[in-house]
Each structure stands twice: as C-alpha cells, then as structure tokens.
C-alpha cells in the first residue's frame, strides 16, 4: 500500500499542484495537533485526578514561592534577539541570490560581498562594543 503514494511526475507542474503542496503543509500542521490531542485524550481516560491545593504550588526548591513569578529578565537576551533579526533578514536576502548565483555571475558575487561585508561590520561593531560578552 505504501507504494501507492509514489506518484509519477506528469508533465508540467500546474498551479493546483503548487497549491496542493501548501495545502499538505497545512494538513500536516493539523496532524501534529491531532497527535497531541490523541495522546492527551488517551491520558485523560487513564490518569487519576486527585487535586489538592498543595499540588498546584509552583516548584521553587521545596519552599513556598516568593514574589512575582513573571519577574524581569536579563536585558542581554534582548540584544541577542535584535542581532538575530539583523542576520536572519540577511539570510532571507541571501537565499534567492544563492540559488541563482550561476546566472548572476561575477556581478552578483561582488554585489553580495558588499552586502555581507556591511553586515559583518555590524557584527564587528557589536563585538567591539562588548555586547557579545555575557558578563
């Protein structure tokens, strides 16, 4: 039966084939959610439920939790998140170029080097500003 999935490529890719691929993406997201639901549903049939207030206290090394749970976090994570956005956008721009490099040739190569160089300067700046050090 498993062999039946192997569908021969027939002729040109049509628009509906393109859309169907993306519909499959949606469906697979749904399958993932369904799997979690099935597991949790199965668990709810089997598991006991003897709730006590003590069981609902946060774990804080065995003592009663102190203060607000949603406390402030270290600002450094924010800096790293910003740098991530910088380089991730860079990656978005490089991908189409990388796939078409043969067509662009030397022109595309030089063009992209300038782009990468400017972004590398950004990384160097953060490095010199000691933002990459944790402490």
């Amino acid at each position: 039966m498993a062999l039946l999935i192997y569908q021969r490529e027939t002729g040109l890719k049509t628009m509906s084939e393109f859309l169907r691929n993306w519909l499959t993406v949606l469906i697979f997201g749904g399958v993932g959610i369904l799997l979690v639901s099935v597991f949790l549903g199965l668990g709810s049939l089997l598991r006991p439920s003897r709730d006590t207030p003590q069981k609902r206290i946060n774990y804080e090394s065995g003592v009663d939790p102190q203060g607000d749970m949603w406390s402030q976090a270290n600002i450094r994570y924010y800096v790293f998140a910003l740098m991530f956005v910088l380089f991730d956008v860079e990656a978005v721009f490089i991908f189409p170029w990388a796939a078409r490099l043969e067509v662009y040739g030397l022109f595309g190569l030089v063009e992209m080097f300038i782009f990468i160089f400017i972004l590398a300067l950004g990384l160097l700046y953060a490095w010199r500003k000691r933002l990459l050090r944790w402490v």
Binding site: N58, Y59, E60, P65, M69, W70, S71, A73, N74, R76, Y77, F80, A81, F84, F87, D88, A91
Partner: peptide, 23 residues
Amino acid sequence: GSASKYSLIGGLRAAGQLVAYEL
C-alpha cells in the same frame, strides 16, 4: 506560561540559544 522562575529563566535561555544557533 508556567509562571515559575525556573521555567522563565529556562525558557529565556532556550530562546536565546535557539535564535543564536539558528543563524
């Protein structure tokens, strides 16, 4: 969502690590 200090620190560490190695 866990509203626990350990969870919050762990979640932030995970996020920081995952975005750093995503690149």
